[in-house]
Nucleic acid binder design. Structure first.
Lengths: 329, 329
DNA sequence: CTGAAAGCGCTTACAG
DNA sequence: CTGAAAGCGCTTACAG
């Protein structure tokens, strides 16, 4: 593969490289006939511009980077897809970087000159945050509430989600409610729990501390830990409802309860959180608090482009949640 | 954000840019004390090399591109994750490009000078393939059986998967078997169907043409089309088993059957294909033909790096399948 | 309308 | 061991 460059095209078309550049970039200064020759030559040679050369000059790449530690599972997949669609709509390229190594993240962010980046990390550390802030590159954080001059964020109202989940259980007449945590200490988990607790305090239901268990946002782990709970608890002490920190753990929770020989929602009701498609594939269909993932992706891209185009300062937007009724409550 | 460049570091350290470059890239030619000064200066200035400048010279980027039309859903997520892990292990960066626009794909492939690319497209057209081949960039295709000097591919044995699925149904005593297609004309779908049919021909079971329906690899669409089939077919004419082209459509199929008031596997057995985690979340657990996605990702990366390092020619590897017994047969 | 030249940020022979 | 210079492929004032 002998790379064909702008020089080759110039030679082939019998013009200078400046003219090739102008012709190819539709700078309307070049003679129509000349332009035709250049375009022909480029096509004949199958010329593809080297983006490195271009970007080195331009300093605008029309690309957005998305940084995540994983793209496995329903949730990240949906987020990435929403972002990718929004980018396409706005004429930006999206490139997704899957890394856990924070050093690489910042090298990559600063070194690739993407116009801006969208970041989602469960455990965003301050070092990364400070570096990013310092370099002043436009960024929007997902699932976080922070902003500064060049930083925006979009989160959904996790605290509100906790409240909605609790309220739905309370309204269904549930009295003793447990919580299947996600990743302890993560922002989402904390917020959901806070909202959940606050809502319960305003009701005649109680939060059962003995049913505060950790499911790590995963189906299998939640399954195991709920099974363990049921085994180790006298059956007259069972909670009559669980709030699970996300949908996959809600499904693990439901499966554990049913495999143990109890019924959902009759014996124990379960409400999840996120509203991924998966909730509709299983039986019973999971009642869940819908996280508007598509909106989140779209909003993130809009906010980022505003930052890139320097219209206004960074801002933090919080998206509302909605209960999605299934059969598990 | 005033970008700090190699020049700034040079000035700060009181040396030339050549020396900075050598020091930073561990070329062991520079005096330890000088190197120390340079590293200090770089740190003080928070210098991050501009990859565009670097790549323009180097022509090796130590990054691999992954091109896909979507990363939604369980399948693509797992593939991407497997690839990303394999890349990390081998010291390559991975960047994922989500696009449907084939023109952009090839511009991006040729323009970014990634060292090599991995491509998965359901409907890979010849134009794209020919361009890629012509440019001679190292690439490996997923879910395809093609190879040439600089092209490898890794697929799993879809034909074999069809055979295994059929055999499992036949061995369970099923006599009249239907097929829930995926995307008609897609490589995977065709191969699975071929294997399925061939195996049935060697048995006393029959393939019921009236139950040849199209589920588009999706849960909802499969659900609808199976429901329609059940409604429009006299109940003494029902098939007693379905092979679904992937797991999500198997789940749609199972849900449709159960919602219609029939039992799985008693009345109608269902076998899926792929072995995504999801199959274990639902009831009944889906019996499926396991596609070794992790292996596929790892193999793809290995093959690609071989191509990049120019050890040998491209090759096509096909991974074996395995029946994973659930409760749906 | 077209071209020669400078420069984007880097690396790498080549002298010294 | 260190530095001046050329060059990677592009764009963009600036002359003409």
């Amino acid at each position: 593969m002998t790379k064909v460059t702008i020089k080759d095209v110039a030679r082939e078309a019998g013009v200078s490289i400046s003219t090739v550049s102008n012709a190819l970039n539709d700078v309307d200064v070049v003679n129509a006939e000349t332009k035709g020759r250049v375009l022909d030559a480029a096509k004949r040679l199958k010329y593809i511009p080297n983006l490195n050369g271009k970007n080195l000059k331009i300093r605008k790449t029309k690309t957005i980077g998305f940084y995540t530690q994983s793209i496995e599972g329903f949730y990240y997949g949906m987020v990435a897809d929403a972002i990718s669609k929004a980018c396409e709509m706005r004429g930006y390229e999206l490139v997704i970087h899957v890394t856990v190594d924070k050093k690489r993240v910042i090298r990559s962010i600063l070194g690739h000159n993407e116009d801006g980046v969208i970041i989602i990390y469960e455990d965003l550390d301050n070092e990364l945050y400070d570096s990013i802030k310092e370099y002043g590159i436009p960024v929007v954080f997902l699932e976080r509430e922070i902003c500064s001059e060049k930083i925006s964020s979009v989160s959904f109202d996790s605290y509100g989600a906790g409240k909605v989940a609790a309220r739905c259980l309370i309204d269904a007449g549930r009295k003793r409610i447990g919580y299947v945590r996600g990743v302890v200490g993560s922002y989402d988990d904390d917020e959901r729990f806070r909202g959940f607790i606050d809502e319960i305090r305003n009701s005649d239901a109680v939060y059962d501390k003995s049913a505060d268990i950790i499911g790590w946002f995963e189906e299998r782990k939640s399954y195991n830990v709920v099974t363990e709970y049921l085994r180790n608890t006298p059956d007259d002490k069972y909670v009559d409802a669980f709030f699970a920190a996300n949908d996959t753990s809600a499904i693990g929770c439901i499966n554990a309860i049913m495999d143990f020989g109890l019924n959902v929602p009759e014996d124990i009701s379960v409400v999840g959180c996120d509203g991924i498609d998966l909730t509709k594939f299983v039986k019973p269909v999971v009642t869940t608090v819908k996280n508007p993932i598509d909106d989140q992706g779209r909003t993130a891209v809009e906010l980022l482009i505003d930052l890139i185009d320097e219209v206004g300062l960074g801002m933090s937007v919080k998206l509302p949640v909605k209960l999605e009724r299934g059969e598990s409550v």
